[in-house]
């Protein structure tokens, strides 16, 4: 069974179906992979300027909307200067 066990209380990276990226601390999840994030932020990527971080706070994300959940290595994450990163946003899912 490949579950989200092991991600609880960790800093995680969430990629949603519309291409959005949310970083947060996983507070909990359920069988449908619905996820609760605390202290979450959306990261908005663009080619024109550095990454913009929008604080979202406590968020519940429906499992249907999730593409990928990744565990963030906080040491690496903090060593990256987001203001210098220029990137296209992740594309939305196309079925």
């Amino acid at each position: 069974m490949s579950s989200l066990q092991g991600y609880v209380d960790r800093r995680v990276f969430l990629n949603l179906q519309d291409g959005r990226v949310i970083i947060g601390t996983m507070a909990g999840y359920d069988q449908k992979s619905n996820v609760v994030l605390s202290d979450s932020k959306e990261r908005v990527y663009s080619m024109e300027e550095g990454v913009e971080e929008i604080p979202l706070g406590l968020y519940l994300v429906k499992g249907d909307m999730i593409v990928l959940i990744g565990e963030v290595d906080e040491a690496i994450d903090q060593s990256v200067d987001l203001t210098n990163i220029r990137a296209e946003p992740i594309p939305a899912i196309r079925y």
């Binding site: 990276f13 990928l68 565990e71 290595d73 990163i85």
Partner: peptide, 27 residues
Amino acid sequence: NIRLDNIKVLDEARHPHMMAVKNCFIR
């Protein structure tokens, strides 16, 4: 659903979003 360890995004220059992500869960 798939769990991957030691992940790397192909074409990392274009997709730096997941630089700090080492393992992931894919729906």
